[in-house]
Amino acid sequence: MAKFLDRNWSTILLLLGGYYAYSQIVLRGREAIAPVTRPISKILAEIQFAVNGSNYIRYPNAGFYLDPSKLDYTYKVVDMQWLKAMSLTHDDHEDYLNEIFDADLRLKPQYRVLIDGLVDAETITIAAKG
């Protein structure tokens, strides 16, 4: 094994350097084309929705479950995908989210009673009154 490494160390270094250079080129290429590919992918998704006759999932009734695993110990939202999904599933959900969370996406103190429960217009009103 020592003879193999002694004879081929320059080839091994060349291969490792080539791999590193190639990976950097690929990484930079992905970063460069990302601003272009994101809008294209959204357009293609909309076309697919139109062709298939499908659309985004929507709740028939306004209201969602406030899962404590979506918040950290300071009651700040940690799962941004969940937040986006909740705002898209019903037209009223964005208003509910704006009401119960502050600008830093931290749950307001009066609405902490809603954790592990249903969040809808009625429960928000009850929680706001104390």
Rank of each mutant, 00 (worst) to 15 (best):
S54P: 09
D79N: 10
K70H: 10
R38N: 08
V36H: 08
L66W: 12
L44D: 09
T37F: 02
G53I: 00
A50S: 14
P68W: 05
A62M: 02
L66D: 12
A34M: 08
T37S: 02
G53F: 07
V36K: 08
N55Q: 13
Y73R: 07
V36E: 09
A34V: 00
G63E: 06
P60Y: 06
V36A: 07
L71S: 04
Q48M: 04
S41Y: 12
S54Y: 14
N52K: 11
S41M: 10
L44Q: 12
V36D: 08
Y56L: 03
V51A: 15
I40M: 13
A50F: 11
P60H: 06
D67W: 07
S69Q: 08
F49H: 15
N61P: 00
Y73W: 05
Y73M: 05
V78T: 02
P60D: 10
P39Y: 00
Y65K: 12
S54L: 13
F49L: 12
F64C: 00
P68I: 04
L71T: 02
I57D: 03
G63S: 05
V51G: 15
M80K: 13
T37Y: 07
R38V: 14
A34L: 10
P35I: 02
A62R: 00
E46S: 15
D72E: 02
I40D: 12
M80Q: 12
D67L: 04
E46G: 06
I43Y: 15
D79G: 03
T37R: 05
Q81A: 07
P39E: 03
N55L: 07
I57V: 13
N52H: 11
A62S: 11
A34P: 03
P60T: 08
V51E: 15
A34F: 08
T74Y: 05
V77C: 10
T37W: 00
F49D: 14
R38K: 13
T37K: 06
P39K: 05
L71K: 04
Y65G: 10
L44E: 11
L71R: 03
D79F: 04
A50V: 08
D67V: 05
P68E: 06
P68A: 05
D79T: 07
A62F: 01
V51H: 14
Y75C: 05
Y59R: 13
A34Y: 06
S54A: 14
N61I: 09
A50W: 12
N52P: 10
I57R: 04
